[in-house]
Design a protein around this nucleic acid. Structure first.
Lengths: 205, 205
DNA sequence: AACGGGATTAACCAAATGGTTAGTTTAGTA
DNA sequence: TACTAAACTAACCATTTGGTTAATCCCGTT
């Protein structure tokens, strides 16, 4: 991998890869330092502790991910358009960073409440507002007879589930359906169209 | 927790809980032994090593889970009936064992190929056959004009995603939607009906 | 050339970790 | 009761782990 950047960047890059793959408990400072081609003491010199290095990686992930998704979630697009864009955004994101969902869910499992306090509410993402806007919008379009009337929280969950979970099952699908790397990319590529269409079909009033 | 059973059972029970919550790397033999109210050496006496204890927990999970799900997947029920039963089975299973998906996905991430060799193909679950039967069945019902014609693998993924992922997002949903424990149970209870209905609606020819 | 501060290293440290062992207790049996 | 094998314990061990430190290197400034 790239050896050009300065040590601090190399550490961050190595830490990201290893924390993503192995989680906090499974990652080793020694392994990170080797991947970054840096003396182990450098990790502490720049980031003080394993926990703080991890927090930094987590924060960078959230800074990247949340705005990218919430931009579409909170837009003024009509529902169908919006759904398409959200699914596409998830697909692109997770094609780049396939380990991200498991990484975040792992944090969530060890820390849930604290995680929200520090990382979400503490920062100034437009997180809850964007979600609420989506839920409201659905109810409006339902009132206007454009979609079936139902609890919009389930729509949101269905949308996110169908967008994210296939990436988490990647190794499963590859093994059980006998897919190659290319097959899988094609498969999730198809879902970029299939999921929005399927969603809207299921929501006809 | 129960203190009645014999030490071996107590160890298995404690190990299950701790491995489920923290994964292999995050679990500590000392912690397991304390939870089981047993000397740490007993863990090695009964199970030789951390890895073998972990493998045992994993095997028990698969022995419980796979038949329970594949029974419905491979049955002779018509599609709509089958979908309902599968979603219900997932809901019941994951209400009992909410940490199970993350646990298995974590194993999959560290080990995917080896996992399949040893745990799936090595054992005699009716795994692949049941999945293939589901896929075939869809194509037949599509040919008979009962459902929309499309790649049935996507149906399967949608079904599993919408059934499993909400449980993985539990702490997320609880925080962001402000749900209590009861609210969440009610929420996933609703999905037992909503998901099958939503799926079939989206599959009308 | 001498200075000085940040960057870097090798060596080190204490605690934790998975695992072992030698010895003791317990319970069934001849 | 004496014997034995399994169950169990405390103490121990080697290695790994996150983290520290003292010394050195590097490089721009005076």
């Amino acid at each position: 991998m790239s050896e050009v950047e300065n040590p601090e960047q190399r550490i961050l890059q190595a830490a990201k890869q290893i924390f993503y793959e192995k989680g906090f408990a499974g990652a080793r400072m020694q392994e990170i330092s080797e991947a970054a081609q840096v003396n182990k003491a450098m990790l502490h010199y720049y980031f003080r502790s394993k926990q703080q290095l991890f927090d930094r990686i987590l924060k960078e992930a959230l800074d990247l991910v949340i705005p990218r998704l919430m931009k579409h979630m909170g837009s003024d697009d009509p529902l169908e358009e919006k759904v398409k864009k959200i699914v596409a955004a998830y697909t692109e994101l997770l094609t780049e960073l396939p380990h991200l969902p498991l990484f975040i869910l792992h944090v969530l499992q060890t820390d849930a409440h604290d995680f929200f306090q520090r990382m979400i509410l503490g920062s100034n993402y437009e997180f809850q507002p964007a979600l609420m806007k989506f839920l409201m919008q659905y109810q409006q379009e339902a009132a206007a007879g454009k979609v079936k009337s139902m609890d919009p929280r389930h729509i949101l969950i269905n949308l996110v589930s169908m967008s994210v979970f296939p990436f988490m099952m990647k190794s499963f699908l590859v093994e059980i359906l006998g897919l190659s790397e290319n097959d899988f990319e094609e498969f999730v590529g198809q879902r970029r169209d299939i999921v929005p269409q399927f969603l809207m079909d299921g929501l006809r009033p």
